[in-house]
Nucleic acid binder design. Structure first.
Length: 668
DNA sequence: CAGTGAGCGAGCTTCCGCTTGACTT
């Protein structure tokens, strides 16, 4: 009997099917040993020797593996082929250290495979190797550095700001992004500008039937780009344009090819599900887990856009059969993984089988599956072909010569867009992103240089420059991934952490920093700017790569970080003043004492209102955010409340007189 | 599907990354 240990139970089931009798396959369920939760667990005086303990809840799992190992002829450590997987293999070897199997001292071998196919596994079993200690040390360095940052800075926050707070290489940068964006928005001054649109048609003269109307936008005045700052300027131009003569100038046509997007990674799946389905990263991962366990999709925690050859082949067959040769590119599309820090232990997220789910509707699992299915099939289809037309229109006024521009777009071939076009997806959720300036494109009537035009209508519009958009889950995950901070398994938990700590709040899907978030961010950035620099993780990854390559030793890398950090830590704990977090005020005067302000405080059950003069004045009231909707039963305000268990729901402010309530947000 | 709560200061909190259930707060 041979024993194989993998990380995921779903993977172990698949392997059992391939290998049959003679192999016992167990899943470690991720890491089995780690630094202790309640202690620092790193000896900073003696080369950072870590004190590893069996992870909480893994005691039974460890025993099961140890027992199975004693009975095994051969032991294969088949954890994922990446830094964390190598470390898990090392910890597995450590829990079997000194054990004997069938009376002989135990031998284990390390095998890796990137595809879960029978062939890949048989190949791997033929050429087993040993654990790569350089890679293990890179993981160990990462782990210990994160422990040092997290477990030294969090207590500093308890003493200097408030108990229970936390800091970390990843979470603090996530908060920083949100805080800095908020400050950009605060200091943003909107600038007025005007755009002038003209509706024109070809002048046919006499009693000819009307030719179609199209829209053009004013772009130039006397050969220079036009900038209209206020209404007076706009009106002056409008007056002149009303009496101008219009004629078609240059007509430019260009064809462009639009390639399909790459197949999903964890990050892009979370972003797309957020934008199209309105889901949180957490929900997306829960639903994806279900699909993975049913064998419908490949592994859902991945940073790779690679596809198994076999998958590309069945996808191409499918496209040929369902859409015809026209939709099939000559050769398969290959996607390069964009993230520099990618570990590439898994494939992209794709369906395991294309015959399922073509006509799926309703149900969370089915909705997510459909998205994954379409994105995968589309990624192997032919590009879309678009013909763009740009027409310059000369308008000769009494004093000035103006140029207007009309743009049209015609789809010559839809290609992959037949399946996965953004605009065609009616589930698309309106995002608060800056979509300004994306005028809907229209088809233009056929026009030739020199054609005379007549003006149908002129439409000046007042606009203002827009501040940058606040982060939502999708854009925050994208920002973190672009910075190389966090991993597929941590994007969703990181968002939960910064919300739980009340560093940020989510309103209408957008993140706002709280006063606490501002305070913690400013404190940490004042004293430890290098650790929370956007480049810190990228530099760390370079060091870890060198450790993994054997070019560097891990202890000096950590030593070089730790010594100056520790010095700074000691001085800050002595010198830094305690930070007072500002309470939020509502701007109202206390109804009890008529002296204090009504402030929003945070208690065991969340936010509540009280008087700023507490404990002198004991006024309290529940904090209930209004939603702007009216109760359908009695016309009162609809308010957002929480049940005892903390679940949010919508109810009427006239409760208990009116008992209207709903789980879902009311609509107009 | 519903009305609480802070302060005081004993004993507690906390990181990132890998993987899923076991459960009533």
């Amino acid at each position: 009997m041979n024993l194989i240990i993998v990380e995921s139970p779903t993977k172990s089931k698949t392997l059992s099917k391939f290998l049959g009798e003679g192999y016992k396959i167990l899943a470690s369920m991720g890491h089995i040993r780690d630094l202790p939760e309640r202690k620092f667990g790193v000896d900073t005086k003696a080369d950072f020797v870590p004190d590893y303990v069996i992870s909480k809840g893994k005691e039974e799992k460890v025993k099961e593996i140890q027992e199975a190992a004693k009975k095994a002829d051969k032991i294969y450590l088949a954890t994922d082929p990446d830094r964390e997987g190598e470390a898990i293999a090392y910890h597995l070897s450590a829990i079997m250290q000194g054990q004997k199997s069938k009376g002989k001292s135990q031998k284990y071998e390390r095998i890796t495979f990137h595809e879960i196919t029978k062939q890949a596994i048989e190949e791997a079993l033929k050429k087993p190797g040993s654990i790569n200690m350089d890679l293990v040390n890179a993981q160990q360095a990462r782990r210990i550095l994160d422990r040092i940052v997290g477990y030294k800075l969090s207590p500093l926050l308890w003493y200097k700001i408030r108990k229970g707070l936390s800091a970390g290489r990843v979470q603090t940068v996530a908060v920083r992004l949100i805080v800095e964006r908020e400050r950009e928005i605060e200091k943003f001054v909107p600038k007025e500008y005007w755009q002038i649109f003209a509706q024109l048609r070809k002048f046919l003269g006499g009693k000819m039937p009307d030719s179609p109307v199209f829209t053009a936008i004013l772009t130039k005045k006397n050969g220079n780009k036009i900038e209209i700052e206020n209404q007076i300027q706009a009106e002056e131009i409008v007056e002149e344009l009303k009496k101008a003569d219009y004629e078609v100038g240059e007509v430019e046509k260009k064809e462009s090819r639009r390639s399909p997007p790459a197949p999903f990674t964890t990050s892009t799946l979370q972003q797309t599900a957020s934008n199209r389905l309105g889901w949180s990263a957490k929900k997306t991962m829960q639903v994806a887990q279900g699909l993975y366990e049913q064998g419908l999709i490949t592994y859902h925690r991945t940073d790779s856009t690679n596809l198994a050859l076999e998958a590309i082949n069945f996808c191409r067959e499918f496209i040929k059969k369902e859409f015809g040769e026209n939709y099939l590119p000559e050769s398969p599309r290959v996607y390069k993984t964009k993230a520099k820090v990618a570990q590439e232990a898994h494939e992209a997220i794709r369906p395991t089988n294309l015959e399922m789910g073509k006509e799926m509707g309703g149900g969370d699992g089915e909705r997510l599956f459909e998205l994954i299915w379409k994105r995968f099939v589309a990624c192997q289809m032919k590009e879309a072909l678009v013909e763009e037309t740009i027409i310059d229109i000369n308008a000769v006024g009494q004093q000035n010569i103006f140029v207007l521009e009309a743009r049209g777009e015609a789809e010559k071939f839809n290609g992959w867009k037949i399946l996965y076009d953004k605009a065609k997806n009616n589930e698309e959720i309106e995002n608060n992103g800056n979509k300004e300036g994306e005028e809907p494109l229209e088809l233009l009537p056929p026009l030739l240089k020199g054609d005379a035009l007549e003006l149908e209508k002129i439409d000046p519009q007042q606009k203002f420059t827009q501040p940058p958009a606040r982060f939502n889950e999708a854009s925050l995950i994208k920002a973190l991934e672009d910075l190389g901070i966090g991993r597929p398994s941590t994007y969703a938990p990181t968002i939960s952490t910064i919300l739980d700590r009340m560093y940020v709040e989510k309103k209408e899907k957008n993140f706002f920093p709280t006063n606490l978030g501002f305070a913690v961010n400013d404190f940490l950035l004042e004293y430890f700017p290098d650790i929370f620099d956007y480049q810190f993780t990228a530099n760390l990854e370079d060091d870890l790569d060198e450790i993994a390559n054997g070019q560097k030793q891990w202890v000096p890398v950590i030593r070089e970080f730790f010594d100056p950090f520790n010095k700074k830590l000691n001085s800050v704990s002595k010198v830094a003043e305690r930070v007072a977090v500002e309470t939020e005020t509502t701007g109202e005067t206390c109804p009890t004492c008529k002296e204090g302000q009504v402030v929003i405080r945070v208690g065991r059950f969340g936010k509540f209102l009280s008087c700023s003069r507490f404990p002198k004045c004991k006024y309290t009231a529940p904090y209930i955010p209004k939603t702007g909707f009216k109760c359908p039963k009695c016309g009162g305000d609809v308010v957002h409340k929480k049940t005892k268990k903390g679940k949010g729901f919508y109810g009427c402010s006239n409760y208990p007189k009116c008992d209207w309530a709903s789980w879902r947000k009311p609509t107009k």
